[in-house]
Design a binder for these strands. Structure first.
Lengths: 202, 202
DNA sequence: ACACACATGTAATTGGTTACATGATTTC
DNA sequence: GAAATCATGTAACCAATTACATGTGTGT
C-alpha cells in the first residue's frame, strides 16, 4: 500500500480529468497510458475507497449521468499535494521481465522455427500498436495543444513510436538473418571463457 | 506455480550451462539476461527444490568446488522436455508498467523541471547500460560463435542496443524541446473532444 | 582479525490478477 | 427481449520481493 503505484495513477488521471467513475477511469487509463500502463478493477475500486478515506479524492453522485450505482470522483488539494510529491521523487525501475526476449535467448534449445514464430508474433503485435499510435499522432497534431498535459502526452507517445520503430527494424534484420541462415554452427557449451554482461541494477 | 516463469529461466540457464549452484545461477542470470530479466534468491532456492522434486533437474555434490554447503544442479531429459514445451508456446505479454513514462505523462502537474530531472536520470541510466552492452558486443564479436546459443544471445543483445539507442535519441530531442520552450501554453483540461488511444491488450 | 564473496534458506508481506457475483442502463 | 455496455465490488490466489537468519571459504 505504501509503494503501490496504482493510487498515483488514479490521482493523476483525476487531476487531468475530474468527475469520473471507477469504470470510466479504467477506460481513460487504457486510452491514454494504455501502451505502457495497465490497471485492473480489482485494484481500482479498493484503491478509490482508500483514497476517499484518506481525503485525497472525494466521491459524489453523478450530475451528468445520474444513474443508480454510479459514483464520481474528483481530486482534492490534499490529493494534488500527494501526487506532486510523488511526481517529484525519482522514478523507480522495477525489475525487467520480458518473456519474448527470454524465449528468444533460449531459442537454441528449441530451434530456429520456434524463434521465427515468436518474432512473427512480436512483429504482428507491434505493427498493430504502431498503427494505433501513428493514428493518434495524426489526429492529435492538427488539434494543437488543446488541453493541459497535451505536451507530455505527446512526449510519451513519441517514446512509444521511437521504441516500436526501432524494435520493428531490429526484428526485420533478425528474421532475414534466420531465414538466410537457419542453422547456426554448433559449438561447445557456455564455459570457462564466457563473456558476461554486468548490467547495473538498483 | 503453474505459470511461474522462474522455473523456465532456471531450466534454460542449466540447459546452456550445467553444474551450477543456486548462487551461481543467479550470477549467470544477471550477467546474461540481466538487462531484461531478474530473479531473487527467495524465488530461486524454493524453485530449485521444486524442480528436483519434479525430476526436471538433479542435485549433486560439487566436484569442481567441493565445499560444505554447495549444491550443484543439472537439467534432466525431463527438464529439457519441459523447457522445450514452454519455449514452443507463444510468449505472453505481461501488463506493461513503466513508471518513468507515467511520471512523464503526468509531468504537467509538477512542472518542466521535474520532467527534466526524470529524463536526465533516464539518460544516465541508459547511457550506462548502453556502454555495457557495447562492450559486450565488442568483446564477443572476435570470439565468433564460441558456444551453443551464442547466436540468440547476440540477437537479444541487438534488441537491447536498438532499443536503448532509439530511446536515448528520443530523450535528446525531448530535453532540447523542454529547454528551448520550458512553458507550454496553458489550455483547457482534457474534456469532451479528447483523443483516445485504444491499444489492444491480450 | 577482518572483510568479502560464496552459499542456502525461510517468513512476512504485498501488490496484483483473475474469477466470481450482482445489477442497472442503453441499444438493437 | 436480448445483448452489450456501464457499474461496483469481493474472495481466492499467487508470484515475487524483502528482510532476516545462518554459516563457510578465501584473501589481505
Amino acid at each position: 500500500m505504501e509503494r503501490s503505484q496504482t493510487q498515483y495513477v488514479l490521482l493523476g488521471i483525476l487531476a487531468i480529468h475530474p468527475n469520473q467513475s471507477g469504470y470510466e477511469i479504467r477506460k481513460t487509463i487504457e486510452q491514454s497510458v494504455g501502451f505502457f500502463w495497465g490497471e485492473s478493477f480489482g485494484q481500482i475500486y479498493p484503491t478509490l475507497k482508500r483514497l476517499v478515506a484518506e481525503g485525497s479524492i472525494v466521491a459524489s453522485a453523478s450530475k451528468s449521468k445520474p444513474t443508480a450505482r454510479r459514483q464520481e470522483y474528483s481530486i482534492t488539494p490534499r490529493g494534488r499535494e500527494a501526487l506532486e510529491r510523488w511526481l517529484a521523487i525519482p522514478y523507480r525501475e522495477d525489475p525487467p521481465r520480458d518473456e519474448f526476449l527470454l524465449k528468444l535467448f533460449f531459442a537454441n534449445e528449441a530451434g530456429p522455427d520456434v524463434a521465427i514464430a515468436h518474432i512473427r508474433r512480436f512483429q504482428e503485435r507491434n505493427r498493430q500498436i504502431l498503427t494505433t499510435l501513428e493514428q493518434i499522432e495524426a489526429i492529435s497534431r492538427p488539434h494543437g495543444s488543446q488541453f493541459a498535459g497535451y505536451r507530455y502526452w505527446m512526449l510519451t507517445l513519441g517514446y512509444g513510436l521511437a521504441h516500436i520503430r526501432a524494435v520493428l527494424a531490429w526484428s526485420d534484420t533478425v528474421l532475414a538473418d534466420l531465414a538466410a541462415n537457419p542453422e547456426a554452427p554448433a559449438a561447445p557449451s557456455l564455459g570457462a571463457e564466457r563473456v558476461t554482461s554486468p548490467i547495473p541494477h538498483e
